[in-house]
Design a protein around this nucleic acid. Structure first.
Lengths: 151, 151
DNA sequence: GCTTGACCTGGAGTCCGCTCCAGGTCGCAG
DNA sequence: CTGCGACCTGGAGCGGACTCCAGGTCAAGC
């Protein structure tokens, strides 16, 4: 069983992190110091890649680097930190859920606006073409009559 | 019908934008120059607040300021820009949907990890308390055997 | 009239998360 | 042995989105 390893470039391709970011994360202690070849080059193992995949979950869900670092530290500190890790992840999970909810709500408002615009277009195309290019549509005025208050 | 107006502080409280941010957005042309009192103070009207509510939808769904500015400009340029506005918003909507999808997927992976940890805890509490604090749990090693590859 | 707090301006400063750079090494192909 | 491309380091630079500051004005209450 030859323990295959990957260069930083390969890992970059696999994980989507840029080469610079991989080195940056390592400096920050977000990744354990990666094994090196004789010539000093990084040799990532499968576990490293697995960890990076998880880090990408954290990052892509908006966890700040500092908190990821804390989490990494907990992982390094041994199994007795598992409860804390759960707390940290669960708290993050809640934030992500809340974030998703915000996105859904606000996206709905955006879609609503699109529909309003499409209504405007349908109306315009249906009856008389282009009635005065500069109507009472000054940024907020025009459509606010339709949507006004309500985030 | 007295057209009520709001001070920058009131609008800040209502919209959630900080006072500084409100002024900043106005400077950038993201909001039309707001009406002023004799003494030079901003007096926001309901339409302004409505527009800000919509801006918060764009911002909170991650639209960069520059694109918001473009959108604001289209709104100012008159009704003939409605198709472009729709395009801009629709494109943004797609990105937001994609983003939500990413969040869901990655959140699922995080939950999976939490469950794994809870399994570890249940196991540990069930049979023999704390078996060696510094096991083979060096950051990625331990749990990678469980989750390994797969973002 | 005086105090106090909210407001004004232009510009500088901050924080985050990378990203780029210079100057040097490694190692494989030809 | 010579390229050449991928890699190394420490540190500087960048883009985005605010946030803060100094120094001044305004307006309502006492």
């Amino acid at each position: 069983m030859s323990t295959t390893t990957y260069s930083v470039g390969e890992v970059s391709a696999r994980t989507g992190f840029s080469v610079d970011t991989l080195r940056y994360y390592e400096r920050l202690g977000l990744i354990e110091p990666v094994e090196r070849s004789v010539g000093g080059r990084r040799m990532y193992r499968d576990e490293d890649v697995g960890w990076l995949d998880f880090v990408s979950c954290l990052r892509d869900t908006g966890m700040p680097i500092e908190r990821m670092r804390e989490f990494a530290e907990l992982c390094r500190d041994g199994e007795h930190t598992v409860p804390e890790r759960v707390d940290l992840l669960a708290a993050h999970g809640q934030r992500v859920e809340a974030e998703i909810e915000v996105l859904r709500t606000k996206l709905a408002a955006i879609r609503h606006k699109i529909e309003y615009y499409e209504g405007v277009l349908a109306l315009r195309d249906g009856q008389g073409p282009d009635q005065g290019s500069t109507g009472q549509d000054g940024q907020q005025a025009g459509e606010s009559s339709e949507e006004g208050r309500r985030a």
